[in-house]
Design a protein around this nucleic acid. Structure first.
Lengths: 213, 213, 213, 213
DNA sequence: CATGAATGAGGTTTCATTCAT
DNA sequence: TATGAATGAAACCTCATTCAT
């Protein structure tokens, strides 16, 4: 079952010739463009292919179905963000809470703001693919990295790290989303960064219990 | 334009007869059921009508189109939650931060947990209707009530209440969503309540500046 | 599994209004017409609907998919033929071999020749649907009736009636097919009748062993 | 018109190199395999090429189109069977009816049973290519050989040999098909042989009229 | 000669919506 | 008013075939 699900999304062929690499990228970019211009409801495989300058048939040589196309777009984005968060977490191991929070928040916000168009476009399909195994797995990666990091924070212990992390994650992602959806002016992004650090640090400070080492 | 948009969603006829009231309710309930059972992608007007025990024709007598149907379901739910939050805000005017937060969080979580099935079902259509005027307006109501309340908190002042509220709101709604989507066991809901209060209060305490009165 | 298979072919809705009865018949007739005019390869649901004077949508209200459409055409025809054979078999119970064979052959050939166009058209789809449960079941009906009849023939016994019947059935159906496919002129049909009786009776006479009663 | 038709099916190039011979054979074998595994509906040129270990392009170097591919598979098989029958007929010239029938039936059944997989696979495409000139011509070969043979049978004359042969042929081919499709166990094949001889001989004995020489 | 990426017409199927009954 | 048969645009997807590399 799981294998089948995974196969449903795995790309159909690995491009061996040079030109197909170009094609795949064109399709991926076109997916985002169409998503932003027409919205998820009106995103059709034909429109994406057209936008990418190829035929539908070509699109279907690389993606077995529409969901796989959307999935791939989402996955790539979430992976990038996940990577950024993981890296930040690794860098802040054993640091005090404050720099920890700061590092992670900056990494996340930066990653999201790098291509606001993509970030925005993908919110609309995230809900559609929410149930998917891989999507969940990717989301989990970030949370696990956070949990691991928090457990190395000196002088503080969290009763239920998983839950704490979930709370923090929910706050970070959704606040960022709200800012993105209301335009993401530089000023707002600056405020977002500052306030997210405040919010997360405040929460962790209250939620954790002192630990003797 | 806006008038037109608003008209597009308003129910076609006001149910004056007793029978119509029953029918409309049946359709609304059916919408939720179908949403939960088949998912948004496979929600069809025919299926909803069938589930409600009426014909498609009848459905179209009460809703001008499918979006109006979904919209109405979402609106009703959001209104209920919005009302609860507004009431809580009114009750906590001029209270200290802690009870304020506690009151609002409890009101929100309670409202969401009253019918977890509905709450869950509607997440899938929220993104679809996200751009709609009315939906935004409803979301705004809660935030305004929160802002108004916060400004009556004794001894503390917020530089940019709108932003602060937005942050808090984002955290509250998304954490609740995460809990709902992972099953919403009584234990988790209890933790959610407690941690949300911690998180919000921590944030507000950090974010606000002392105020001389 | 079997239930699912059966459902795949069962008509989608039972026509309750008068007009739909007409529609279904028009679609069935159109299926045959298109089959004859364009061949199975070029039979498309759109073409059938067009020919029937309805829209594709209407076609799909009565048949869940293309296979069901073809299946229904085949089933109706085979049932009719099967009925004729069964009736003939019942009428010849306990008769001597000669009238038995005559009765069955006549019944079969008559049934097939009643609408040579339909008979011909369906050969092309029979192979496609050959594996299907119901098709097999219908074919079995005729053979069972034949076997039952043969076992009541006075003074003769067959070692392996099933096999004997299969042989006879294969000969009858395929010879009829050959005649149909080469034009089925009245003269040929007359010869077919006579020779089939000869062939079957000759075979049964050789194949059976005398039985003391 | 006819010339064009014939050209449509002829292989595009005559395999002169050793390698090509291997390739063509691989493709033919792959055609059968795919036919058996996926069925005619899902037989695609790409799949056949893949299975044969070559690219689609290569396939199209040897066959001008898909029909030609199927046609060639069918033709080869039918030729082989036709050869066997012709040979048997030649060997039984001027023999009495009984050995004639025996010889032909054995030859036919043996030829069909040599590769039951191929025989089975081809039934599904026979109907599709039924109208083709060459296919018909091949079928005719066997019947002509049979007719020629029967006319040399001592002491018996057939009023309409063509028709008689057609009947016999229909019985032989379809009974064999039925046995193949129900598994073709050794025991069944043995019975098929015996009963076909009975059936054909019985028929010819009844159908023919004594002849003075 | 072989490859396999690209094509795009055309197939099947769905479903929001209308309207005669 | 309620019904549900009919509509048909439009979606997804396949696959025979070509041709630049």
């Amino acid at each position: 079952m799981r294998t089948q699900e995974l196969r449903e999304f795995s790309p159909r062929k690995t491009p061996v010739q040079a030109r197909s690499g170009v094609t795949v990228e064109a399709i991926q970019e076109a997916t985002i463009q169409v998503l932003l211009e027409h919205g998820r409801e009106r995103l059709t495989t034909t429109r994406v292919a057209e936008r990418a300058g190829v035929s539908v048939g070509t699109l279907y040589q690389y993606y077995p179905n529409k969901r796989a196309l959307l999935f791939s777009a989402l996955e790539q984005h979430l992976s990038r963000v996940g990577d950024a968060v993981e890296r930040a977490c690794r860098e802040q191991l054993h640091q005090p809470l404050e720099p920890m929070v700061k590092g992670v928040v900056e990494a996340f916000v930066d990653a999201k703001m790098e291509r606001t168009d993509i970030s925005l476009a993908l919110y609309s399909i995230a809900s559609e693919l929410d149930g998917e195994v891989l999507v969940r797995r990717i989301g989990t990666r970030g949370r696990n990295a956070l949990a691991t990091m928090l457990e190395t924070a000196p002088g503080v212990r969290f009763e239920n790290v998983q839950f704490t992390v979930m709370m923090m994650f929910a706050a970070i992602t959704n606040a960022t989303r709200a800012v993105l959806e209301s335009g993401a002016s530089p000023k707002m992004v600056r405020m977002l960064r500052r306030e997210l650090v405040l919010l997360c640090h405040g929460y962790l400070a209250c939620s954790g219990t002192p630990k003797l080492e």
